[in-house]
């Protein structure tokens, strides 16, 4: 007598789905449900008030609004500048920390402090230090570098979003360091020794030997930091300027400070931001993949 065990093809997918349900259910209900509801409301469907206009009214209004494009451009600038600076500073600092003598390595843990600080705390730190009545302005005044406090450059509200860029960079650099250090932990120091023997300077070694090795982590870090800065609300709420404002502030104002009839507009901005994020990830990954000779896979 013999038994042949045959897999039950009909029950296997069901079992698989049940196994994945702790992950899938929150994803489907909270994320997909939220995204669908947002998109619906942007078309005037399922809105708190009956929508009288056309399906694409909210989008038409937005695309005719110059302030929307100004906010979009400003958000893009702040996100790009802060993510780039955070990743660049993180990569450089990670390399310096990695090269520290063993006995100094424990001290380098100080870089993790900004990681545990909430974004809002970092925003206040930037405000306290860099505003015209802040610590640095006071020190400059005490040292006689400026005669009056108001002579201190208006860094936070210069129209370039420098306060937000500074805050996001302070918060993002340790995150980029963490990613880079994970790769450096497995990096062969003999690569650097060989390059030095072949006559390469420290700067050349960093850019031609170390940086390509860190590239995968830095690209991932850039995508995460860029998208966070692009859409986050907390730091812009403290440090943003009015015109142009960040998109997140724009959405907040329409959602909370105007009547319910403008709800589709707010949802249309959120939908466009989500679509932009998806397009950005695909385009960035493809560009990097092409640059890295097909090594990177999304």
């Amino acid at each position: 007598m013999s038994w042949i065990s045959k897999p039950n093809k009909t029950t296997r997918p069901i079992r698989l789905m049940l196994g994945l349900s702790p992950l899938l259910l929150p994803y489907l209900v909270l994320f997909c449900g939220g995204a669908v509801l947002t998109a619906c409301q942007s078309f005037g469907v399922l809105t708190p008030l009956p929508h009288a206009g056309g399906v694409l009214d909210a989008y038409t209004t937005l695309l005719r609004d110059a302030s929307f494009f100004a906010s979009f451009g400003f958000s893009l600038w702040v996100a790009t500048a802060s993510a780039f600076l955070a990743v660049a500073a993180g990569a450089f600092l990670a390399y310096r920390v990695w090269r520290l003598p063993g006995r100094l390595a424990p001290l380098s843990l100080v870089y993790k402090i900004p990681l545990i600080l909430p974004h809002i705390a970092v925003a206040f730190l930037v405000l306290i230090f860099w505003s015209r009545s802040g610590v640095i302005a006071s020190v400059a005044h005490s040292l006689g570098l400026i005669r009056e406090m108001h002579e201190f450059p208006n860094i936070l509200y210069s129209g370039w979003g420098l306060g937000m860029i500074l805050a996001y960079t302070l918060k993002g650099a340790p995150f980029a360091m963490l990613l880079a250090l994970a790769l450096l932990a497995r990096f062969d120091i003999r690569q650097i020794q060989t390059a030095a023997m072949l006559g390469a300077s420290g700067i050349r070694i960093f850019f031609t030997i170390v940086l390509p090795r860190l590239a995968p982590a830095l690209h991932t870090g850039f995508i995460i930091l860029f998208l966070y800065s692009f859409g986050a609300f907390d730091i812009p709420y403290i440090l943003s300027e009015s015109r142009p404002g960040m998109l997140s502030i724009h959405v907040y104002n329409i959602y909370f400070k105007h009547d319910l009839a403008r709800r589709p507009e707010a949802m249309a901005i959120l939908t466009l931001m989500f679509a932009f994020a998806v397009v950005f990830i695909i385009a960035y990954s493809r560009a990097v993949s092409r640059l890295e000779n097909g090594v990177r896979k999304l």
Binding site: T194, A195, M197, L198, P212
Partner: peptide, 18 residues
């Protein structure tokens, strides 16, 4: 710098991105 001592390591240590 033009005429250095160069060591070829056991596992060659080629630069992987080049």
């Amino acid at each position: 710098r033009e005429n250095p001592v160069i060591i070829v390591f056991q596992d060659y240590v080629l630069f992987p991105s080049m």
